[in-house]
């Protein structure tokens, strides 16, 4: 089931968006969010859509992947649209079918609200598709760096996040193998009473947890053996270099903000 979710996956590539400093991409997100929330009409939404499509084009990743990223939330978007159609009675009446009336204002609000969500998912997908998880973690760390002075252990947080990103797929894989092994041994949850189902699921957590612990111990050994000590000073291999393209990229996000404010 995790296989259906594509948002959050990294897609290898060498586009200019891939090469941007992760901090630039992360800084652009809140700007875009502001724009998305300020939009309240067709024109604004259209401008933002065009802008997003331009960025997507820049990633070199086919459009269909972005559409697939939205799929899990399609239902929610549809719900928002229908909700507005049914309950928003502003502007001229477009359709009157007895109890069911559609107003132009309702239609516009519905479409704009639904597209807000779509726009945001698309841009989030741009971020995760084009940035390696580790870079995301490190970018986040370096954006949070100023918080070190109020006692936030950012280095440790970044390491933890990096390790989590590194091991979550492995643990998922192991859980999947366990699931398959038990299916092979005739496990069929649907035919079982609820109590039995609950008992089994708890029992299955045992091998998953021991597996995760086994890996954690192995990793801790490997880290310690290579001289890692909590809190000891370390140098950094990955240094981000802020280029002009990064400034331009973040600057470009003032466009949708302006468009949303003006249109």
């Amino acid at each position: 089931m995790k296989r259906k979710i594509i948002l959050g996956r990294y897609m290898e590539g060498d586009s200019w968006v891939h090469r941007l400093d992760p901090r630039a991409k992360m800084a652009a997100m809140p700007l875009f969010m502001v724009a998305v929330f300020m939009v309240d009409g067709y024109m604004g939404a259209l401008a933002l859509l065009l802008f997003t499509l331009a960025v997507i084009r820049g990633t070199g990743i086919p459009y269909r992947y972005f559409i697939r990223a939205m799929k899990p939330l399609m239902f929610l978007m549809l719900f928002i649209l229908v909700f507005h159609l049914l309950y928003d009675a502003g502007g001229s009446k477009l359709l009157d079918a007895g109890a069911f009336k559609v107003y132009a204002g309702g239609l516009e609000k519905g479409i704009v609200s639904a597209s807000r969500m779509a726009l945001f998912i698309m841009l989030a997908a741009v971020l995760t598709f084009t940035t390696q998880p580790e870079q995301l973690a490190q970018g986040l760390g370096s954006l949070l760096k100023p918080l070190t002075c109020i006692g936030l252990p950012t280095d440790r947080l970044v390491l933890m996040l990096g390790i989590a990103l590194r091991f979550i797929p492995t643990i998922f894989e192991e859980a999947e193998r366990l699931w398959k092994a038990l299916q092979s041994r005739g496990l069929d949850l649907s035919s079982r009473p609820l109590r039995e189902k609950a008992r089994l699921i708890i029992a299955l957590l045992v091998p998953v947890t021991t597996g995760a612990f086994r890996r954690a111990i192995g990793l801790a050994d490997s880290m310690e053996a290579r001289g890692y000590r909590l809190g000891a000073p370390r140098s950094r291999f990955r240094a981000f270099v802020w280029k002009r393209a990064d400034t331009l990229f973040v600057g470009a996000f003032l466009l949708p903000v302006a468009a949303a404010a003006l249109l």
Binding site: E174, R177, L178, K180, A181, L182, Q183, S184, R185, G186, A203, L204, V206, P207, T210, G211
Partner: peptide, 17 residues
């Protein structure tokens, strides 16, 4: 499933009872 038994890699990691 009964007639074809499948033993996965590191099957001891799949013991749970």
């Amino acid at each position: 499933r009964q007639r074809v038994g499948l033993v996965f890699q590191y099957p001891e990691q799949q013991l749970f009872e």
